[in-house]
Amino acid sequence: MSQIPVELVKLLIALAAIAAFVGLNGLVLVYLERKIAGHVQRRPGPFEVGPHGLLQPLADAVKLIGKQLFTPAGADKLLFWMAPVLSFFPVLLLFLPLPFGPTATGMEMNLGLLLILAFSGLNVLAICLAGWGSNNKWGILGAARGVAQSVAYEIPLLLSVLAIAFQTGSLNLSEIVQGQGGWPWQWNAFVQPLAFIIFFVSALGETNRAPFDLPEAESELTAGFHTEYSGMGFGMFFLAEYANMIVVCSVATALFLGGWQGPFFAGSWWFLLKVYVLLVVMIWLRWTYPRVRFDQLLNINWKWLMPLALLNLLITAFVTKLF
């Protein structure tokens, strides 16, 4: 019975570390996004609070906490407040199986990939509840779009992940990372570029990032499903979105970019570096490309990504088995 506390302590430490990681990176990403947006638009971005506006995210956080939480008239109060909580609810868990480094994994498990995919699905539910519960037409429209989009993009995402799984025969992220080498041509992205592209595009759709940010399209729906949220309610959605971005990029890194492996000095920094490169690309895309129309969005998915992903999977199966 003496081992039980050891396991527990390990888990608690992992929990604390992950929570800290999420919080910190959330702040960093907020800053990064605003800065990159600024520079893409040829303006400096936040500059006042702290050096180069470094403390701006903190100030935002304090402001959000200090704002009143109000429920719109006629809203379903329970659903309305469940939504932001629910959107963040699974986030910490998603980090649990991620291999940050050779030994820095929250918990080794043989179905880690499946766990991430399964629990990230809860996000859709949060969007749905938020839109439905807030008794707002923008909200409901955003939610409808969000759900249709998220569920649609989930399938190519899964199929592209499956291509890797078929190739490696494992759903354990650590094993998948170990199966790749340090150099870029040893990465899965090199072996399966199509899967990587599909994964990345689908990930954009999944996280509601531009050019697929239809559910919260500012110019059409004010703020989509979280129109009615202010203060910390909005903050939670915001944080959850960034956390999801990190998860998605981490998974992409582990699956396709060799994870913590690098040409030299293999370790967590490679992992973080690759994740941040992907994140920056995501932000960059957002401020570069115009938003697609909703029918285009779905057509891209059903008429391009899906058949391609299926084809890719078929080829993968063929190649793994017959060569």
């Binding site: 929990l15 939480l69 407040w81 609810f89 986030v91």
Partner: peptide, 22 residues
């Protein structure tokens, strides 16, 4: 454990906000 952690992480700021906000 992690789900409860997520709940606290999300609920904490909300409750804090509910206490201190006007």
């Amino acid at each position: 454990l992690f789900l409860i952690g997520g709940l606290l992480f999300a609920g904490g700021p909300l409750i804090l906000s509910a206490i201190i906000a006007p």
